[in-house]
Design a protein around this nucleic acid. Sequence first.
RNA 1: GGAGAGGUGGCUGAGUGGUCGAAAGCAGCGCUUUGCUAAAGCGCCGUAGGUGUAAAAGCCUACCGGGGGUUCGAAUCCCCCCCUCUCCGCCA
Length: 422
Amino acid sequence: MLDPKLFRESPDLVRAALAKKHLVVDLDAILALDETWRIKLQQVESLRGQQKAANAEMAKLPKGSAEFVSKVHEMKAVSAQVKEGEVVLKEMEDRLKQAMMTLPNLPHASVPEGRTPEDNVVFATHGDVNALSSHAKPHWEIAGFDKLFDFARGAKVTGAGFPFYVGDAARLVRALLHFFLDENGKAGYVEVNPPIFVNAASATATGQLPDKEGQMYEAPVDGFYAVPTAEVPLTNFFRDEIIDEALLPVYRCAYTPCFRREAGNYGKDVRGLNRLHQFDKVELLKWVHPATSYDELDKLRGDAESLLRKLELPYRVLLMCGGDLGFAQSKKYDLEVWSAGQKRWLEVSSCSNFETFQARRAQIRFRGKDGKPELVHTINGSGLAVPRVLAALLENNLQADGRVKIPTVLVPYFGKEFLSFA
RNA sequence: GGAGAGGUGGCUGAGUGGUCGAAAGCAGCGCUUUGCUAAAGCGCCGUAGGUGUAAAAGCCUACCGGGGGUUCGAAUCCCCCCCUCUCCGCCA
């Protein structure tokens, strides 16, 4: 959500920023709604003021007195007006709030212009893509893949996109998670194990609702949503709280399974481990002082990158253009790992600064120097998502004999130097 | 799941229909005096929205877990929901 004062006082500034995101928003309609709401608010407040004044008078009058009775009669009319006005006001408020929820976050000045993913800027590339195994093939074509990554039985037991990881595959998932959490801990992120169901208020605060309603699995009897990312419960940890300024920045990380319905995503990029309904991910999250948030974003991106480096996986960093920025982000970098078999880049982390967008919805603040509460900036990114790292690892490290070489840093976690499909 | 007890400002805790946005204490901030690891006295000390302003101040309204209702008037009465605690049931 945006600051109402911002678009009320500087609508042109907001208009220009929204144009960069290439989203069509009827700001004038919202401004008009805001205007009528404020007029109505003043009406109702003045009526309530009358009630309050009368109340003070009546408290001093004897209960049965003629004066009292006539006052009651008089105030009945006012009371009716207030009730009527409040209904209208509530309706206006709801409409305004709903309209404001459709306003996306404004992009930062450093975000490049652009409309489509093709316009994203390759910010950095690391590692030699051409030096990889000549045996590489798409991971789902590796002999024995189906035994270790059992999609068929997953589909039987649950549905498509819910694979079983068996034996060495399960072990490798666990090794990766363990490695990620250990490394993130060393980088200063406090590990958290959060709930993996959240309520509607939490999903709204981080921007999943109402924007991405159909993308989450729901438990309607209890009003819960299965988390699409640990970002949701983690960010909501401090919802409706004022954090001690001295505690900023707060660094946290969390592993959770992530659940995504991925409604509407079909095609070849859903093969194998590329896109699943349930997958494991470690999320990095920071609550920071607004003055430092872009430095903190760069640092967080660096933390995620260092995981890929240690795993010896070639990757590139994309700086997302205005048109490819998400609804809630001010600035976003995507980390994409090279998958030698598929010969394409796979997104494994998305590092974003939300500025006050989430913080306003979630009311996460700190007390500034002047004693006034101020919204924090929230920043998050994956560190990292497992399945695509796994895909790249299987493809890039495939040996002539059909085994997969385990990166050196992972050997202590995995317990062996090779993964075998035999 | 059943029965009962509760949810009040940063914390503790009064308040059961009318000047209650809410006593008191603690913590915090400022000033004064005595002193010099401290004490006493006085004052200030919630959040949000609107209005106002260069910015403030000021003014208005709302908020006593959340949402409805009764009433001229609700922290206080009624209904629903959420949460906490105790007991019972069930259970990894």
